[in-house]
C-alpha cells in the first residue's frame, strides 16, 4: 500500500521469481486515494526461509516508498469468511 509509481508490480514479481515463490493471483486498485496491490503467493518452494523473505520484502517496499506486508491467508479467512 502507498503511492502508485512505475514498476511496483514488476519489482515485486521479480523479487518473488528470484526466490522461487509462485504468484497465484494478483490484483490492484485505488482505495480512498491509496494504491493497493494484492498478491496471493505460494511459499512452498521458496529458496529462502519465511522470516528472511519478510525482511527482504519490507526493504523492497521501503525502497519504493510503499508498505508491503506478508500475512497468512488464514488471517483473512478468519476475519472475512464464516
Amino acid at each position: 500500500m502507498g503511492n502508485d509509481k512505475v514498476g511496483i508490480i514488476a519489482n515485486v514479481s521479480a523479487f518473488f521469481a528470484e526466490r522461487s515463490i509462485n504468484i497465484e493471483d494478483i490484483s490492484q486498485t485505488v482505495l480512498s486515494g491509496n494504491f493497493v496491490m494484492m498478491m496471493m503467493v505460494d511459499l512452498a518452494d521458496s529458496t529462502k526461509p519465511l522470516a528472511t523473505v519478510k525482511d527482504e520484502l519490507t526493504e523492497l517496499g521501503e525502497s519504493m516508498g510503499v508498505a508491503i506486508s506478508l500475512m497468512h491467508e488464514r488471517v483473512f479467512s478468519a476475519m472475512h469468511r464464516i
Partner: peptide
C-alpha cells in the same frame, strides 16, 4: 482473488495503522 481489495485493506490497516 479470494478476498476483495476492501477486505484485504481493512485487515492490513487493522495491524499496520
Amino acid at each position: 482473488m479470494l478476498f476483495t481489495a476492501h477486505e484485504i485493506k481493512e485487515t492490513v490497516d487493522m495491524f499496520l495503522r
